[in-house]
Amino acid sequence: MPKRLLALAISIATSGIGLTTVLGPIIAGALRAVFGSSPTRKRRSSAASRMGGSAPRTPRGRLDDAQDIVGACHHAARLRHADPGPWTVLLGVLRDLRRNPREGFPVWDEIIRRDPWHREGYLQMLGYLSPEECGSSTQQNAFVDSAMARMPFGAPPAALEPHVLLGRYRRAVTGDGLTGLLADRIFNQPFAESVLSRALSTWPRPGFLRHAAALADLNVLAYLAAHARHRDAANAFRAVGATVTPWPWRLGGDPLEQYSTWRKYFPDPRMRRVRSLRARRPG
């Protein structure tokens, strides 16, 4: 089982929604496959740290235990009709199998029928429709435009546009020749400037993002603002504080090292003022 699907299954099992019994055999088998028959606490912690972002893609059309997962998801959905979790895992299976998005949209409809602003469901569909997977930039942009037009401020999937920007930047960085060398220019485009300015002016405010994965979204924002050398990047770093998520910092190496290095370039201006006042204070 790919680690991204494993993370989804664990999320369902540990969220208190009563699906452990249904998905338990699938999760247990996945854990044995990843950790071996007797995983140690240290190895579990290490693997968990790698689940913080998008997991590596499975080779197209291959997922050895797909049928078991699909069956478990449908069974869980019957038992917990109002829960979007099983449908979200099922959408992840279709992604890894690289099935036509036409097969994914009915599953997507089941997710948003149960939770109109299900963050993981939106991010799954965003990845599904990406040019790297089963869609195109046109399809992905249409999906995001439609969602953002009706999404309340601060809703759990609020980071759709920053994730699109992150995808564009990653494609540019990994491009050949001049494309890779000029990747940073993507942040000069109107879409990037608009997305970063809106997010940096609202997200870092205390209490603006209230969903469970708010810190994960703030880490994405800090990463993008840092690489864009945005004048307000310090606000995102201040909001993140000391809670660093592996994704997307691990794209450049060790997440903690990457975060610490970039944060030094964007010190909190409030701290500079405090140090200045202390320096001028009479002895």
Rank of each mutant, 00 (worst) to 15 (best):
L123N: 08
Q124C: 10
Y122A: 09
W108A: 08
G121R: 03
E132Q: 15
I112L: 02
Y122G: 07
E120F: 01
R113M: 08
S130K: 03
E103Q: 11
R119C: 14
H118D: 14
W117I: 13
M125E: 06
W117K: 11
I111P: 14
E132Y: 12
L123G: 05
E132W: 15
R114W: 10
Y122F: 15
W117C: 11
V107M: 03
I112Y: 01
I111S: 12
L126N: 03
H118Q: 10
G104Q: 05
L123Y: 14
L123D: 06
M125G: 11
H118R: 11
E120Q: 07
V107E: 10
Y122I: 08
E110C: 08
D109F: 01
E132K: 14
D115P: 05
P106W: 00
S130H: 04
G104Y: 10
P106R: 00
Q124F: 11
P131G: 05
D115I: 04
E110P: 03
S130P: 01
Y128H: 10
S130Y: 03
M125R: 14
E110F: 04
W117M: 13
L126H: 05
P116K: 05
I112Q: 01
R119T: 13
W108G: 08
P116Q: 06
S130Q: 06
R119E: 14
G104L: 08
D115Y: 08
L129V: 01
P131R: 09
P116S: 03
G127H: 04
G121L: 04
G121C: 03
G127F: 02
R119V: 10
E120T: 10
E132C: 12
D109S: 00
P116W: 04
Q124L: 07
V107P: 01
Q124Y: 08
E110L: 12
P106H: 00
F105D: 09
I111Y: 14
P116G: 02
P106A: 00
D109I: 00
H118L: 06
R114M: 05
P131D: 09
W108K: 13
I112G: 02
E120N: 06
W117G: 09
R119N: 14
R113N: 07
W108S: 09
E120S: 08
W108C: 09
E103P: 02
W108T: 11
R113A: 11
R114K: 07
R113L: 06
F105V: 13
D109M: 00
L129H: 05
E132H: 12
M125H: 10
Y122M: 06
D115N: 15
Y128F: 15
E120M: 09
F105C: 11
E110S: 13
L129Y: 04
L123I: 12
G121H: 04
L123W: 10
F105L: 12
W108N: 10
W108Q: 13
G127K: 00
I111E: 12
V107S: 01
R119S: 15
L129T: 01
P106G: 00
E110M: 14
F105T: 15
I111W: 14
G121P: 02
I112M: 03
H118K: 06
E103N: 06
F105M: 14
P131L: 10
G127L: 04
G127T: 02
E132N: 15
D115A: 07
R114V: 05
F105W: 15
P131Q: 10
R119L: 13
F105H: 15
H118C: 07
W117R: 12
G127Q: 02
E132I: 14
E103H: 07
H118F: 14
I111H: 13
